[in-house]
């Protein structure tokens, strides 16, 4: 199965809807241990993305992802702007010129996105950041695609791995971001960036499942 440019745009807009629906949750999570703006920031960013995608004039999925990244960088005020922005801009490079993407492209997209986030945020797994959701999700994706599992199973496992990562962030103290100033007091709270990463992967799973049916 592969995704066309239009389906990719649809998927990105669905991510925007999910983040809008969970705006309050993300902001509350961030309010507990951070600066309390993650929900607002993600919603602002993806609202701007949706608007841009409404009149985008290209079929090139690389160009589409690059536009998403640049829009996030300019419209999100918090750390998630440069982090997700870099992720999308790096991912854009591996699908440049493509009008259709498949699971193998998605593996490359995720690989670049995770690498980009590591480079930008200088975080490692265990720091209580979005990487704690994204890295296990990427590892799961890589392995399941190697094993040629059905796409729906793969994407379900990927979002489940991210969710486990989110739950793990609850048990550890933050070493990066504003929450790191709280030290041990950040234990007991989920990392909002990990939650937004999970929500994105969950939306990818649900949207692809619907497209497939």
């Amino acid at each position: 199965m592969s995704l066309t440019s239009n389906q990719t745009i649809l998927l990105l807009k669905e991510i925007g809807k999910t983040l809008e629906e969970h705006k309050t949750l993300l902001t509350e999570l961030d309010g507990a241990i951070g600066d309390g703006d993650h929900g607002i920031n993600m919603n602002k960013g993806f609202t701007a993305v949706t608007k841009k995608l409404d009149d985008i004039q290209t079929e090139d999925i690389g160009h589409i992802l690059k536009t998403v990244g640049m829009t996030l960088v300019s419209n999100v005020g918090g750390a998630s702007g440069p982090l997700y922005g870099t992720a999308f801009m790096k991912a854009a490079v591996v699908v440049a010129g493509k009008n259709e993407i498949d699971l193998h492209d998605f593996v490359k997209i995720m690989e670049e996105a995770v690498e980009g986030i590591k480079m930008r945020g200088k975080a490692v797994p265990g720091d209580k950041t979005m990487l704690d959701a994204l890295e296990p999700a990427y590892n799961t994706l890589y392995q399941a695609v190697e094993e040629n599992q059905p796409i729906e199973d793969i994407l379900k496992k990927v979002k489940d791995a991210a969710l486990q990562g989110v739950q793990y962030t609850e048990k550890i103290a933050a070493k990066k971001g504003r929450a790191s100033y709280l030290g041990e007091r950040s234990i007991g709270h989920q990392d909002p960036g990990a939650v937004s990463s999970y929500l994105i992967l969950d939306t990818i799973y649900k949207t692809i499942r619907n497209i497939k049916d």
Binding site: D35, I40, N41, S74, N75, V76, G77
Partner: peptide
């Protein structure tokens, strides 16, 4: 300094 809409934050632009 600050976001384009006057909140706390930074942006590359």
């Amino acid at each position: 300094a600050g976001t384009n809409d006057g909140r706390l934050g930074t942006n590359a632009e």
